[in-house]
Amino acid sequence: MADSQKPLAGRTIAFLATNGVEQIELTSPWEAVEAAGGSPVLVSPQADSITAMNDDWNHGDSFDVDVQLLAAEAKDYHALVLPGGTLNGDALRVDVDAVAFVKSFFEQHKPVAAICHAPWTLINAGVVEGRELTSYKSLEADLKNAGALWQDAEVVVDEGLVTSRNPGDLQAFNAKLIEEFGEGRHEGQTA
């Protein structure tokens, strides 16, 4: 059992992202996972590094990829974080390997946290029907059309699935993802 100061000690957390990821939605949860004793790992379809964006318009920093997506398997991680960013979310939702990687976390009942535009990938993974979640406002109709129970809330938790709307929700998002990741598998977290 992890101690209360480091609830993610000994846990490896995958962060799935590609070029165009919203920088603060990558770095803030990453730092929260580290502070909770977890080991974050950047997984990407890109081989070497990805370039983040600030507010979808301005290039941010580059981040080294730890594991290329083709070599990544959900069984090697305790949980998954899907940062947002319009370009990132749009690219990952049509990447067959990314969609399969995401779906496998649900099949293994592992917790997943998605923010902003990241729930697009959840739609394509077929895991939102009947689930309560939130997202960036422009995804509301897409999620409802896929059968999700969309809410306009700072953070929504449904059986190990943590979602938030935008960078303004990061404090609540990070707190809930640490809590859910610390709890481990959730039987209600299914594909």
Rank of each mutant, 00 (worst) to 15 (best):
P111Y: 07
P167S: 11
H186C: 10
G37K: 07
A2C: 12
A141D: 11
D66V: 00
D64I: 03
L16I: 15
A17K: 09
A74N: 09
S28Y: 14
V155W: 04
E180L: 04
D61T: 02
V96L: 12
H186Y: 13
A118Q: 01
R185G: 01
L177D: 10
S164G: 15
V21M: 12
L16K: 13
A36Y: 04
V99Q: 08
N88Q: 10
T121W: 05
A191V: 03
G182T: 13
T12M: 02
A146H: 02
G160W: 00
N54W: 05
P7D: 05
F15S: 14
S62M: 01
D64P: 05
P167N: 09
V112S: 04
Q23S: 11
E34R: 15
K6T: 12
K176S: 13
A113V: 05
M1I: 07
E107K: 12
G168P: 01
P45I: 05
T121D: 04
A72I: 06
L80Q: 03
S104C: 08
T163E: 07
Y77V: 10
N145Q: 11
A100D: 06
D90S: 10
S44C: 03
D61K: 11
L16G: 06
D158H: 11
Q5T: 13
A175Q: 11
D152E: 08
Q5H: 13
V162H: 12
P83E: 12
V156K: 12
M53P: 01
R11T: 08
D64K: 08
E179H: 06
Y136S: 03
V112P: 00
P7W: 06
E159H: 11
G37M: 10
K103G: 02
K6Y: 14
L133H: 13
A191P: 01
H59P: 13
E187M: 02
L82D: 11
Q108G: 00
E187G: 00
E25W: 14
